[in-house]
């Protein structure tokens, strides 16, 4: 990995801009190299595919969260409870993490796995998420592990075909049911959200009558602070109301 950047840099300094376009590209690469370096000096090295590994379109980060009983679900305490597991850049690196983590169906308590593009926090407040929303599918107990695997494989393999729109996916293990969701950047982009819904149906092999609910993150944020009555008045924010279930207390 290092040698890749070093090689780029050597290439940079040795070359004397034979044509403008080439030069511009190389400058771009150089900036990237320097940015990566400054990040790595302060934090950690950029994750890149190993030799002979299969690169992914994006790097992704696994997160895990577990609600501490008794604490309010403010965004601050939420952020404290979300723990990074690690970042990967290739198919093989993904399996290396995944094979050493328990399946969601074997998690205990009120906990979640999140898989988001590197740099996007699994929080509504993140810049990539703040205008976004998510498709939510509630699953009866026993289905979460399989559905989660199919969901994230589709995401990593770029099966959704919605450009840059996908932010990440979450599986939430709850008391009586499990919930999987996939987050996208632009809640108002109906072509995108419809395509995500259709892809979900295909990759998850959902029965046609499965209820899927789209929820904007602004609605999710509002529900934390407003009364249920006030919230009812904001039903017009709900995208695809005909698909919405009873919008019960799903605040996560």
């Amino acid at each position: 990995m290092n040698n890749k950047f070093d090689a780029l840099k050597d290439d940079d300094s040795g070359d004397h801009d034979q044509n403008e376009e080439n030069g511009a590209q190389k400058d771009g690469e150089k900036e990237k190299t320097e940015r990566d370096k400054s990040q790595s000096s302060s934090k950690r090295k950029a994750v890149v595919p190993g030799p002979a590994e299969h690169p992914l379109q994006y790097n992704y980060t696994f997160w895990y969260s577990r609600r501490t009983p008794g604490r309010p679900t403010s965004s601050q305490s939420y952020e404290q409870n979300v723990k990074q597991i690690g970042t990967f850049a290739s198919v093989e690196q993904f399996w290396r993490f995944y094979s050493h983590m328990v399946r969601p169906g074997d998690l205990t308590g009120h906990s979640d796995f999140h898989l988001f593009k590197e740099g996007i926090k699994p929080m509504w407040e993140d810049d990539a998420n703040k205008n976004g929303g998510k498709w939510i599918i509630r699953l009866r107990k026993g289905l979460a592990s399989r559905c989660w695997e199919n969901l994230i494989l589709a995401m990593l393999g770029e099966q959704f075909m919605v450009g840059e729109e996908i932010c990440g996916a979450v599986v939430s293990v709850r008391f009586q049911e499990d919930i999987i969701s996939i987050w996208n950047k632009t809640a108002s982009d109906q072509a995108t959200t419809a395509r995500i819904r259709d892809t979900l149906r295909r990759v998850l092999n959902l029965p046609p009558n499965t209820i899927m609910e789209y929820k904007t993150h602004t609605d999710s944020i509002k529900c934390l602070s407003c009364s249920p009555l006030l919230y009812e008045g904001r039903r017009d924010h709900v995208y695809k109301p005909e698909l919405s279930t009873e919008r019960d207390q799903y605040y996560e």
Binding site: G50, V91, E92, F97, H100, G157
Partner: peptide, 20 residues
């Protein structure tokens, strides 16, 4: 783009046997 089948095949790669 990778389909599910291809991704599942990569699971058997020796590198995935050791944790990160």
């Amino acid at each position: 783009i990778y389909d599910r089948k291809f991704l599942m095949e990569c699971r058997n790669s020796p590198v995935t046997k050791t944790p990160p």
